[in-house]
Computed example of a mutant assay.
Amino acid sequence: MRPTGAMAGAVLLLASTLAAGAHPHVFAEAKLDVEVDANRTVKTLRHLWRFDELFSSTVLMEFDKNSDLVLDANELDAAALTIHASLAEYNYFQMVTADGKDVAMKPPARLVASFENNQLVMQFETQPAATLPLAGKVSIGVYDPTFYTAIEFTDDDKMAAAGLPASCSRVVVRPDPDVAIAQNQKRLTDAFFTDPTGTNLAKIFATRLELTCA
């Protein structure tokens, strides 16, 4: 979706192209909860993003249709629907792999928006499109492939896995951007010119949860 008119001001902050700037303009503190079922498969990813006050104020101005400086339920739903549509082409900033192979995810049925302490909070859930067993290494990263939005996990406990079997290990990987760029400079340059709206190479920058199971 390419928003037009006044709505573009808010939505393009989340769904801008790489050409608009290769460094973050929007910041969100995030939490990821992975639910594992009794069959040792990944059942659900639960995401929570708490956006910075500047972006949150922009959303407030765009969607506060009655100008009371509060987003009511209908206005929050409108914001959530717009962001939901805008993030679809970016897979909602999720990068999931199993032993290095991409895993397809079902789009979230809906995003739930709220405002807490002058900050926009978005919550949503996704599930693997097919059964995703915990075998080998399952990696779950969260990153904006356009480099416009920084999704930040302030500590490792913000990436949790409930129901993880004892035979599995959990580690949070935080790549060094300078090292990642240096190691992949040519690939990143080529990807920019062939696909300036974003690249799957973003996974090399993503903070990710790695679950390794015997």
Rank of each mutant, 00 (worst) to 15 (best):
A19H: 07
V121H: 09
A22K: 06
D68M: 08
E29Y: 05
T194R: 03
N74R: 13
T146S: 15
F63Y: 13
R50V: 10
T154S: 06
H25S: 03
A88I: 01
G141K: 06
Q183C: 00
A85N: 12
V36G: 03
T146L: 02
E75P: 12
S114R: 10
A180F: 05
H47K: 14
G136I: 00
S86L: 02
R110D: 15
V34W: 00
A38W: 02
V173D: 09
Q183D: 11
G21H: 03
T194M: 14
K158E: 14
S169Q: 12
M7K: 09
G5W: 03
V26I: 07
N117G: 01
A79W: 12
H25E: 12
L111D: 02
N117W: 03
A15T: 08
L71S: 08
D77Q: 14
L209E: 09
G198R: 07
N74D: 09
P108N: 03
G163R: 03
A135K: 08
P175W: 01
T154V: 14
A109W: 01
N184A: 12
R174K: 07
D33V: 14
G141M: 06
G5L: 10
Q94G: 06
L120I: 09
R208S: 12
K158L: 12
F193E: 01
A160S: 15
V172D: 14
Y148L: 05
A20F: 05
M122H: 01
S56Y: 11
Q94V: 02
F192A: 00
T154R: 03
G100T: 10
E210H: 04
N117L: 06
L164E: 11
E210M: 00
A78R: 07
L14M: 13
V34Q: 00
N66F: 09
Y90K: 07
S167W: 09
M61L: 14
S169F: 01
P165Y: 13
R46M: 09
A160P: 06
A182S: 15
A30E: 08
L211W: 02
L69S: 11
D72G: 05
V103D: 00
V36Q: 04
A15Q: 02
F205I: 04
W49F: 15
T44M: 10
L188Q: 12
S167A: 14
T194G: 09
K137A: 01
D195W: 12
A22I: 12
M61N: 13
L134W: 07
D77T: 15
T199E: 01
D178W: 00
T212E: 04
A78L: 10
F51E: 05
A10K: 02
S169I: 00
W49V: 04
M7R: 09
Y143E: 11
A88L: 08
A130V: 13
E53V: 10
D102A: 15
P24D: 10
A6N: 13
G136L: 04
A80S: 08
T197S: 13
